[in-house]
Design a protein around this nucleic acid. Sequence first.
RNA 1: GCCCAGGUGGCGGAACUGGUAGACGCGCUGGAUUCAAAAUCCAGUUCUUUCGGGAGUGCGGGUUCGAUUCCCGCCCUGGGUACCA
Length: 923
Amino acid sequence: MEYRYQDIEKKWQAFWKQNKSFAVQNGGDKPKFYVLDMFPYPSGAGLHVGHPLGYIASDIYARYKRLKGYNVLHPMGFDAFGLPAEQYAIQTGQHPSVSTNINTDRYVSQLNKIGFSFDWDRTFKTTEPDYYKWTQWIFLELFNSWYNKETDKAEALDTLISKFEEGGSSAAEGDGSFEGSFNANEWNGFSEVEKEEIIQNYRLAFRSLGTVNWCPELGTVLANDEIKEGLSERGGFPVVKKKMWGWSMRVSAYADRLLKGLEELDWSPALKEQQKNWIGKSRGAKVFFDIQDHEGVSIEVFTTRPDTIFGVTFMTLAPESELLDSIVADEYKSKVQAYVEVAKNRSERERQTEVKNISGVFTGAYAKHPLTGNPIPIWVGDYVLGSYGTGAVMAVPGHDGRDFAFARHFRIPVVQVISKDGSEEAVLEAAMEEKGGVLINSDFLNGQKVKQATKTILSKLYDKGIGEARTNFRLRDAAFSRQRYWGEPIPVYYENGIAKAMDVSSLPLELPAVDQYKPTETGEPPLARSKDWFVDGNPIETSTMPGWAGSSWYLFRYMDAQNNEAFASKEALKYWQNVDLYIGGSEHATGHLIYSRFWTKFLYDRGHLFVEEPFKKLVNQGMILGRSNFVYRVKDSNTFVSFNLRDQYDTVPMHVDVNIVKDDVLDQAAFKAWREDLSDAEFVLEDGAYHCGSEVEKMSKSKFNVVNPDVIVEEYGADTLRMYEMFLGPIDQSKPWSTSGISGVYNFLKKFWRLFHNDEIFSISEEAPTADELKVLHKTIKKAEEDVEAFSFNTSVSNFMVCVNDLQKLKCNKRAILEDLIVIISPYAPHICEELWEKLGNEDGVLEAEYPKFNPAYLVESLHKYPVSFNGKMRFTIELPIDMSKDEIEAAVMEHEKTTQYLNGGSPKKVIVVPKRIVNFVI
RNA sequence: GCCCAGGUGGCGGAACUGGUAGACGCGCUGGAUUCAAAAUCCAGUUCUUUCGGGAGUGCGGGUUCGAUUCCCGCCCUGGGUACCA
């Protein structure tokens, strides 16, 4: 009987749907296991073959865990707010929900064709008011919370206000931006507006003035990746930096906990490293430098090397620095202004990458060294960023590479203050950045080692009141406002200019209808177009939430997706806890994975969750790259030359649709039909065929190298697609897609099918299995289990191939063997396994089966095949009993005729025998 | 620049804690079956060779009886990024 995958796959997909085979209950006797894929954005282009890679891996794991006796939660939903849908809405005037729904439906149907075990009863889109009601609710929780540094957690604002009422500003130690002080009496006398202005500095969701990329022509703010070479990607209009008020999230309050929390996570070291670097904790000191001739004005710097303070020969301010206006000497004003104008509008990216291009301007002002009193010239340079630290650097060219380069470029003196052996170098050729050595040229620090000197200087600075030890983080508060339509509305309105939370009972605050989806003529966000965007006459916030809002907590919604009383019930949250296995791309290392950890910690602090981390184990899947094909057009003609002849003509390579190329040979008729202008194409062939060139690139529409999984499912079946994607290589590595190898996996499934069939007839033996058969089976069970636990799915598939090849050779069609084999293959190829399982007469589906138990007794060997090497070169093998001693092995090998041959009359200098491994002669 | 990952046949890749390099699959070659094809099965397939052997896991060194695996230096590819004081 033929393996008819179309019929089989349709049948079982319908069966699963009808029987709700993947619906999961919250609770029960089994241990829980939560497997989650990163939230997909349903793009208009649909799925390509690269997208399901991670979903297949997680589905295999989920099905495996289920067979192992777990209650497995494996949901899927959509992160559906976003720019592309909004862009499309602007162009067409159609509400973005229309295209969003179409795209989502398409994704669902594509996913279902691959046979995933998703519990669709729990699905949702972030764009549904039932869902974003809770995103808004969490926002209000953040708005009404502050970070108490004493208890090291977020608390309700009430606790802050009562502290103010009782003891004024000094009673509360909060993570925030408030500067100044007041006592309890003053506080109680403040007006509502005054109080709010202070509280604003403590809220975890707060208003702040941030710098954005403003495109006046488009009347909107642009993301970094919407800007190409200083111009907007759409339209090519100029982009300028602009200060703008918007909502921010105080993620920086959690910097230390986000860092510490990494320790307990089972994530790859590479990913943890990325998060560590992103959070960027550095210890050092803040130091104040007074400015000469400017009474009361000083520059605050942050330095990681306070021990080098005697080596400061200049200071550098960021072009953004607000101090510049007041300190620049008159004769330098125009020069500085011109420089700042240019430097400020360069992107941080540009300023980062152009290391060799040193630029800066002297301000004409001098600071006073806090210890020596020496004048220190103040420069402005774009290597100093306004957004990090204090936006000012005490430059120590002797011991910092960038300061050194700057000093060399502008001929500023370099002073060496640390030496390896206490003696000074004649000329410093490069900055000595190592944190070791002995202090020189440093007054009272002379002779001290770096570690000691750091302690000494810190206490000196503190005593003199000019600085103190300080820990700095690179992590910045996250901009939360977007000047867009297609996002969650922010449930806040303004009364007399004060931001006020909307009542929780009024949530969800649904997106208003607007006539157009673009900004207003005056550059306000699209929501400002609505005539009813008011609460009792007070205007509602017009910016919307960013994409990361909805995706920061979605994992908890799956636990109890229909709940209308809470984002999820306590029972559900307690039962499922957090995600046991999370699979997705590493590009989310510093965005999504930071934000969702932040929200989880926050919700935990406020008592809404039982866990502090969202994702216990995380596996990154690599990208599947496309393999593009090329044809070679003779310049100014419609003649195309085959690959190996292309150099004989003046040709230009042209991408050709990979779907009309098979094994690099072009389907000429399909090519002519591909585009109208190619209908009269002519070919120069080699061996009667047109051979295409190829290259590995990212999959994209414009390169015509996109392969749609629907096409593969149609031609080979979902089971083949699933196994082939796994077979391609290690899950975490990027690799090129090539459809040509797929027949190997397809053949495997056909072979597997044939084990159960004798010619046309289903035929199974009830006989007891032989030792050989059991050995093959249990070898496979062992390896399959080890591989799936190690996420080594590619070796798992080849392991199945070896097993089926072996059973075929043994002509094994015994139920006792094949039944177990079906179960272990079923996570990979669920449809064919369900079918065979049913044919074996099982009433319940293979989903309800139990994973076979590995029995090591079947693998016991009595002989070992020893490789015998001479000087490390393997020459022959010899089979010996496994329990032979070292001496017996040596004696047995010495007797072998080939040993005498390779020893060539001489005697070996040394013989190495490793029982159950190898024998090596040194001659 | 810095950080991370990787470099093995024509191709995708395998190799446990240092122990037979190239499992498994694609492709290719030959054969069986067939009127023929599809499908299937069998054999071969790292390179080189005077058929004894020799070389070989990006390159150059080192440790070891033995290195794809460990150490040092370098080159290349991919990803991330912050000139981070």
